[in-house]
């Protein structure tokens, strides 16, 4: 494989990994605080629709992004209400949110634009387009470093860089700030947080809202960055791959980057080499698509290092009597 092809493959891996990474970090905030979220996909979908629709109507990608974040955070509030305030089943709430997003985006989309649930094609200035980093042109002729810089590092849209910056930021917030300490504590032993005079409810809502924020950016990236508009069911299960990546990364920010990039690479590779052949055996494209899920099951089964979730995850907090 020559270097140009490889660099291109890496570049598209990064673009495909970006929505996964944002959603994965979103899930990380929520689950580290003890709130399971299998509704990442639904929040992404709602955000993708809202962003696509508002960007199309207003002509501004940034307004679209805001709308996407708003839609996603609204669903976060529903999830928070169900799982924090009303102490309901977090898994069922997640399932409901996925359906709600799936149904509402199609319903409103059809009602609004009459294009079979799609939003109108976005023009270039209402999208997030690739940014040439400084010297990308000039360096491109330099061997090895040149193509890597200009085709892998440079040329992505702003949301890709935001996603990448979110990784160290998440790590810093989680492990270096008071907020992060309390967030991790509430996911491990909410009783300890409560008796320390901190509100479990407030702490968990904050985490769930951050989750909504990041899912919102992720969804907006899909419809205004990666594509030019919203298409029905455009997440295509990406929220679940993000969930898989979260488990794969054992709920840690840096490994989350690795896991998402790996899954993004698998997708990019699958797209580029449909049905490639290894040692005389043709690997079906479906196998490549299923690989992230298979790998996650292997991890979950504990065959390759056990994934231990935050201890209080999934359980509503009730003061014991």
């Amino acid at each position: 494989m020559d270097i140009d092809v490889f660099v291109q493959l890496m570049g598209s891996s990064l673009r495909l990994a970006t929505p996964l990474l944002l959603a994965c970090l979103a899930g990380l905030f929520s689950e580290r605080a003890g709130i399971f979220d299998i509704g990442l996909d639904g929040k992404m979908l709602a955000a993708a629709f809202a962003a696509g629709a508002v960007a199309a109507v207003s002509g501004s990608a940034w307004l679209g992004l805001l709308a996407g974040i708003g839609a996603s955070m609204a669903l976060s509030v529903v999830h928070g209400l169900a799982s924090i305030t009303l102490r309901g089943n977090q898994l069922i709430s997640g399932v409901a949110i996925n359906f709600l997003a799936s149904g509402m985006t199609a319903l409103i989309g059809q009602n609004w634009f009459h294009q079979g649930g799609q939003t109108p094609q976005l023009t270039a200035d209402s999208r997030f387009l690739g940014i040439q980093l400084p010297f990308a042109e000039g360096l491109s002729s330099v061997p090895i470093v040149g193509p890597i810089y200009s085709n892998f590092i440079s040329g992505h849209n702003i949301l890709v860089y935001i996603a990448l910056l979110t990784v160290p930021l998440t790590w810093w917030i989680l492990f270096r700030t008071r907020f992060g300490l309390r967030l991790r504590a509430v996911g491990e032993n909410p009783g300890a947080v409560d008796t320390a005079g901190i509100s479990v409810v407030v702490q968990r809502y904050q985490a769930v809202l951050i989750c909504g924020l990041l899912c919102g950016i992720s969804g907006a990236y899909l419809s205004t960055g990666m594509s030019a508009g919203f298409v029905r069911e455009m997440t295509a299960g990406k929220g679940f791959i993000a969930l898989a990546a979260l488990i794969f990364a054992k709920w840690k920010p840096w490994p989350a980057l690795g896991a998402c990039f790996l899954f993004g690479f698998l997708e990019a590779f699958g797209i580029r080499y449909q049905g490639f052949t290894i040692a005389g055996v043709t690997v079906p494209v479906q196998f490549m698509q299923a690989l992230p899920y298979i790998l996650t099951v292997v991890i979950l089964a504990g065959f390759v290092g056990k994934a231990i979730p935050p201890k209080a995850g999934g359980q509503p907090y009730v003061k014991e009597r």
């Binding site: 309901g88 069922i92 399932v95 709600l100």
Partner: peptide, 12 residues
């Protein structure tokens, strides 16, 4: 979705 939400998650 609403049925799942109200009879399941928001039961309380």
């Amino acid at each position: 979705a609403l049925v799942i939400l109200f009879t399941g998650a928001l039961e309380n």
